[in-house]
Design a protein around this nucleic acid. Structure first.
Lengths: 220, 220
DNA sequence: GACTTAATTTAGTCTTGCCTAAAAAATATA
DNA sequence: TATATTTTTTAGGCAAGACTAAATTAAGTC
């Protein structure tokens, strides 16, 4: 375990994130875009990360994490999500406030601390946004999940995560009192704009736009 | 509140630490020695910190924190000590293990988080080594404390802190099951080498060397 | 296949924070 | 007081990580 700089860690994390959506090799511009840095700077860094065997990199042909690189990256995700659980569960932050803090906390070195933190939090499997927390080996619990938008009238389900974690979206969900674990039944789908009408467990009825429904993960 | 780099924060913290012992202005070499950096580099940084009005600095005549600089430095101490309480109380670390982790955690930005952490921990006034935790204004609780070595035969007291926080010392105290809050009576002082014999609340009797007794704070 | 456009890399700089060696100022000593 | 010693600063460099501008490679189009 070589010591990586915060910058290096952030590159690895971005590459992992992009790999999730896009199975093929990641382009320089994609990374540049993800972390708001010039493509030239990214190019520089990719060479360095390749030298350290954290990525495989062929000039002009994109980049992929090595096993080592992937391990580092997943460990960062693990740390990030555990800290998010800590911030929401123990310090009562709301789910739209925790990302930036976790972004800092994830770079604190000390795997022993993280393992103890995990235990202290009761070995949670998902973070406050419903994203799974990798274990020490980088294994990630898989969960059959679908988007709310895919449900049909009459379906019953529970909210287990969000696809978009933008502050405005999370705050909107808070404002309508929707959170992880909320159970509901689809009582109608508007043909015209694909809005969905839900009846919540607490009896409230709610109309959600197609865009909102496309960003909420549910499980039946 | 300008954003300070970790490096800048560490300089401020060192200057504060040195000021505690030494009321006069702090010399370049002292700082260099404290943080293990060349005097030349320190000189450089002092100029930068003075430009930012965090210290008052007169070439060749040493350095002092400004009100602003002192505020930053005390806030760092506050964060450091609160994180130490967290690590020992919640994650079950022992007092000799927490320093390096707290050294990293103290640089995480977010005063709101720290205030919530403080509350979560039950507003502790002292860290695991018995050092006081500054409040948000930088005020530090004062406590009448004396060194164990100053006590006389027959005195009763309670251990409230340590002067030396070296790992070996803390581990030694752990090994003989002495911790903050331990109550005792001095049942003898050896004239020859000034060792002290204590009777603990739990009935155990213990002989401690002059050096050990010179590094334990007690309160009667 | 030649040409245009988009993506990527290289070249040359800048800032931060560190270093060593040398110069300058302050302090101690004879 | 003059000299020696210690402390501090200046000068010149280096590595990391960023930038812009220019060059190169790949991909898309006619």
């Amino acid at each position: 375990m070589t010591h990586l700089s915060i910058t290096e860690e952030n590159y690895l994390k971005s590459i992992l994130k992009l790999s999730d959506h896009n199975q093929t090799k990641i382009g320089t511009n994609e990374i540049a875009n993800e972390i708001n840095i010039s493509a030239a700077s990214v190019s520089d860094m990719l060479r360095k990360l390749a030298d350290k065997k954290l990525i495989t990199y062929q000039k002009y042909y994109g980049v992929k994490l090595t096993k080592t690189g992937e391990h580092y990256a997943k460990n960062l995700v693990r740390k990030h999500r555990l800290w998010e659980v800590f911030l929401t569960q123990k310090l009562q932050f709301s789910w739209d406030e925790v990302h930036d803090l976790a972004e800092q906390l994830e770079h604190v070195k000390g795997d022993d601390m993280i393992n103890r933190l995990e235990k202290f939090l009761g070995n949670p499997k998902f973070d406050p946004h419903g994203d799974p927390i990798p274990d020490t080996m980088g294994n990630i619990a898989i969960r059959k999940q679908q988007l709310l938008i895919e449900l049909k009238k009459g379906d019953k389900a529970v909210i287990i995560g969000v696809k978009d974690t933008a502050t405005t979206f999370l705050q909107f969900l808070d404002s309508i009192k929707i959170s992880l674990g909320t159970k509901f039944t689809v009582i109608g789908v508007v043909i015209y704009d694909h809005s969905m009408q839900l009846k919540l467990q607490d009896g409230r009825e709610l109309m959600l736009s197609q865009q909102v429904c496309s960003n909420i993960f549910v499980s039946s």
